[in-house]
């Protein structure tokens, strides 16, 4: 890649720049700042789209009373029951049980606290689910 061809397409990380390796006029490599490149932003968006669709799906299911709000926070933090179980040190089958609304609604405050701690929210927030996905960068993308 030639230095003059280093792309400067601003992507999802805004004005954060990264290092590219490119060849200058004398054929020598240089470290060049780059704001991003459209093809890679495309692939990053694609990855997020999958995550966001999953979260939207979960939000629908929470609103319909099929799963507990815990399912939303798990999806929002890109976790599955296995990973969440590791973070909370609650066994996987118990985490799965807590995804049922009727079980979740009667959970011990200490358990709620543990989940909330991993997600870095309050136990009250753990019971809340927004109407749509609320990643800040998602709003601005075309």
């Amino acid at each position: 890649m030639k230095k003059s061809n280093v792309p400067q397409d601003i992507g999802l990380a805004g004005r954060m720049s990264e290092i590219s390796y490119a060849v200058n006029k004398n054929g020598r490599y240089e470290l060049v700042q780059s704001y991003g490149w459209d093809p890679k932003t495309t692939s990053l968006k694609q990855a997020w789209k999958v995550i966001i669709e999953e979260i939207e799906n979960v939000i629908k299911n929470v609103k319909a009373g099929k799963v507990s709000p815990l399912a939303y926070h798990m999806a929002k933090n890109q976790m599955n029951t296995g990973l969440l179980a590791k973070y909370t040190r609650i066994s996987r089958w118990r985490v799965k049980r807590h995804l049922k609304p009727e079980v979740f609604n009667h959970l011990d405050p200490a358990i709620l606290e543990r989940y909330a701690g991993v997600f870095e929210i309050t136990p009250e927030q753990l019971a809340q689910v927004p109407d749509s996905v609320d990643f800040s960068f998602f709003k601005n993308w075309k």
Binding site: M1, S20, Y21, Y29, W37, P39, T42, S43, Q46
Partner: peptide, 29 residues
């Protein structure tokens, strides 16, 4: 999705571009 993932691994994760090939070419220089 499979295709996008390859592109992402090649360009996104701090590779310096071209799946680390440019960085290695700089080393050879």
């Amino acid at each position: 999705l499979y295709l996008g993932q390859v592109v992402r691994m090649q360009e996104e994760i701090g590779t310096g571009g071209g799946g680390f090939r440019f960085m290695y070419a700089a080393f050879l220089q």
